[in-house]
């Protein structure tokens, strides 16, 4: 089955461009990917830009932080058949949300005396402004997230979104439990899997970059993490890092 060439774009808002870079880093698969999609606009991938043409699929990375970005996003939504939020910033606001409690100070620090003339707001997830058809989690997403995504699209379906936590993948790989055995602040129990427990496999506790599972039991995890000797505020920041700074 040779599917129709999809016209895709990648648009970048507030973020580090790591998601787009991760797509570009799928080096072994780029040649075949180029046979499946026609990338008409993506700052790191092509010099071409596309002001008017409609997209079959638009990947959006980064969070929305100003009225002009919001308007740009909304115009893009009208031009694309499907819109996909990619990465923690686009999905939850990501680590950009860390400014939230001290936003004014942060703006003054960055922009100096003209801070109050620059119109910005606290970084927001893409879904706060436009309809999102699919999500690719991660900070950044795994290569396999992109490859599974485009693979499923080539069959005309969205990829399966699983809701199983990192813990399950960690145990399946028979790794030592960092939370139980070493009392490290591992977020594996409440974080969406798909990374094959990349960090715990290196002895690094899960930092939750793929976002929370749909029914995360944060209360109990906080309770368990009391054993890690992190202060309450450190614990809160750790859990909030990739989840948009909601109340914990």
């Amino acid at each position: 089955m040779i599917p129709k060439l999809l016209k895709i774009g990648v648009v970048h808002f507030a973020g580090c461009s790591g998601c787009q870079l991760m797509l570009l880093n799928c080096e072994a698969e780029l040649a075949i990917l180029a046979q499946r999609v026609d990338c008409v606009d993506a700052s790191m991938i092509t010099s071409a830009t596309c002001e008017e043409t409609p997209f079959d699929l638009l990947l959006v990375e980064g969070s929305i932080t100003s009225p002009s970005e919001q308007q740009h996003l909304q115009k893009l939504r009208l031009r694309c058949r499907h819109l996909v939020a990619v990465g923690a910033c686009a999905l939850t606001g990501g680590i950009n949300r860390f400014d939230a409690p001290t936003r004014e100070t942060a703006c003054t620090h960055v922009y100096g005396p003209v801070a109050d003339q620059i119109e910005t707001f606290s970084p927001q997830p893409v879904a706060n402004f436009v309809a999102v058809d699919a999500c690719i989690p991660g900070c950044p997403p795994e290569h396999s997230d992109f490859l599974d995504f485009f693979g499923a699209l080539s069959c005309g379906v969205w990829p399966t979104q699983r809701d199983a936590p990192v813990c399950m993948e960690c145990r399946t790989r028979e790794l030592r439990c960092l939370l139980e055995e070493d009392h490290l602040p591992c977020l594996g129990p409440i974080t969406i899997g798909g990374c094959a427990a990349r960090c715990p496999a290196l002895g690094i506790p899960c930092e939750g970059c793929r976002g929370e599972v749909s029914e995360a039991n944060r209360d109990e995890l906080c309770h368990l993490m009391a054993k890690t000797h992190l202060s309450k505020s450190e614990l809160k920041r750790r859990i909030q890092r990739f989840t948009g700074g909601e109340n914990v």
Binding site: A152, M168, R171, V213, E215, N217
Partner: peptide, 24 residues
């Protein structure tokens, strides 16, 4: 925590999900 560990380690737990995967 719904972490799934109880059934991963259980010698008689056998529930499975079906996942389709397509290469490029």
């Amino acid at each position: 925590l719904a972490c799934g560990v109880c059934s991963a380690v259980c010698p008689t737990c056998y529930c499975y999900d079906m996942i389709d995967h397509t290469d490029l």
